[in-house]
């Protein structure tokens, strides 16, 4: 918006507002939302410049000033140095950026940081305290389910969500339930081993 220097501008008419302004390239100023009146109601419009963003990541509140075009993945990695989620395809295909968002498995590359506000975000980095291994991570290590390791954090998150839901998974359930993650080195046999190990643990009341 060209009128970013007047963050509280409720005087704009709907007619004028509908002519969406040309976007100027990244304004260095960090601004609050522009407040506009649409259909008799106030609406907050954020950006295109930087706006304050607060995320709840692994139980911690993290804040930064970011343009709305930052994805959750890029905010986590580049602003908060939470680098368990990897950027591989950046198009919602490979699964390397998999995180839990309000306990749902999602691709962090396909969610905007601004829309992830107010939600609980969990990454592999937050599954277990520093120096400890979550049982799913431990099962990956035991079954040598990582080679280069770049797909591993995303796969660990997907596996965690999967075994929580399918304690006694069939091969078909594994194919579909873990089908949203790809490995290039070829660790699938190890991952199947990890799933089997975790299923055994769950039957015994573990994991």
């Amino acid at each position: 918006m060209s009128d970013q220097d007047s963050p509280k501008d409720s005087g704009i008419s709907r007619r004028k507002f509908l002519k969406i302004s040309a976007i100027t390239t990244s304004a260095p100023l960090v601004l609050g939302p522009t407040v506009l009146e649409v259909e008799g109601q106030e609406v907050h419009v954020f950006g295109p410049g930087k706006v304050p963003i607060a995320l709840n990541v692994n139980g911690k509140r993290l804040t930064a000033n970011l343009e709305p075009r930052f994805t959750l993945l890029d905010a986590l990695r580049e602003k908060f140095e939470v680098t368990g989620p990897k950027r591989v395809c950046d198009r919602g295909t490979c699964g390397a950026c998999t995180v839990l968002l309000d306990n749902k498995l999602v691709y962090a590359c396909s969610v905007l940081a601004i829309e992830a506000q107010g939600k609980q975000i969990v990454t592999t980095d937050g599954l277990a305290p520093q120096g400890q291994l979550h049982p799913v991570s431990a099962a990956f290590v035991d079954n040598d389910a990582q080679q280069c390791g770049f797909c591993t954090p995303g796969f660990v998150m997907a596996t965690k969500a999967f075994v929580d839901k399918h304690p006694n998974a069939t091969p078909d359930e594994i194919a579909r339930g873990l089908g949203g993650n790809f490995c290039r080195c070829g660790t699938y046999a190890g991952i199947k081993g990890a799933v089997a190990q975790l299923s055994g643990q769950q039957q015994k009341g573990g994991a």
Partner: peptide
């Protein structure tokens, strides 16, 4: 991604008002 502005309306009339003509 090119820069954009972002809004989260609470009513569908507002949502439609925020959308463009083209």
């Amino acid at each position: 991604m090119r820069a954009f502005e972002y809004a989260s309306p609470k009513q569908k009339q507002q949502a439609v008002g925020l959308l463009g003509q083209q």
